[in-house]
């Protein structure tokens, strides 16, 4: 039983959050496609990078909760670590892992990346995927983004 719920991290479990993700992506890609002079490759790359960087900042960079909760229990945890009480392989975490990979695969399919563009997209995806692995739970590689002093 939970004595309280972490309202900061429960929204990815809401119905419609997958649809919102897909909708945002379609909107982004189509919007970029409407800009005159932009190539297909550039449109896909920008879509990928925007989605990756926004989700990375939201789920893996910002620490804590924006309000006081349980004496600061979550103050050194990312949103990903707060979600579903830190358990891996939950439905929300599954779709949030699958969507960026699918996005990458679709983008390579519909475009003809040259090697540098492919590299940029590839590295961005790897960076986004690393913190999603269960073994990276509460791990700060090289102390990046380390906040509190645990005694």
């Amino acid at each position: 039983m939970e004595s309280f719920s972490n309202t900061n991290s429960s929204w990815p479990n809401l119905r419609g959050s997958i649809a919102t993700n897909v909708f945002v992506l379609v909107f982004l890609r189509m919007g970029l496609g409407l800009i005159p002079g932009i190539t297909v490759e550039a449109a896909w790359t920008i879509t990928n990078l925007l989605y990756y960087s926004i989700t990375f900042i939201m789920f893996h960079w910002v620490l804590g909760v924006p309000f006081a909760l349980n004496q600061g229990e979550f103050e050194d945890m990312t949103l990903w670590e707060q979600m579903d009480k830190g358990e891996p392989f939950t439905p929300a975490k599954k779709y949030l892992t699958v969507i960026p990979i699918l996005l990458f695969l679709i983008s390579t399919h519909y475009s003809h990346y040259d090697v540098p563009t492919f590299g940029i997209n590839f590295i961005a995806l790897v960076i986004v995927l690393i913190p999603k692995f269960p073994s990276m739970h509460r791990v700060r590689i090289f102390g990046i983004n380390q906040k509190s002093n645990t005694d």
């Binding site: 891996p88 392989f89 699918l102 999603k132």
Partner: peptide, 22 residues
């Protein structure tokens, strides 16, 4: 090489999708 890398992603995706709580 690219196809191989993409295949790795597919494997990762499938692994995460079909895995359940230990």
């Amino acid at each position: 090489v690219r196809t191989l890398l993409e295949l790795v992603f597919v494997v990762v995706m499938a692994w995460y999708f079909f895995n359940n709580k230990p």
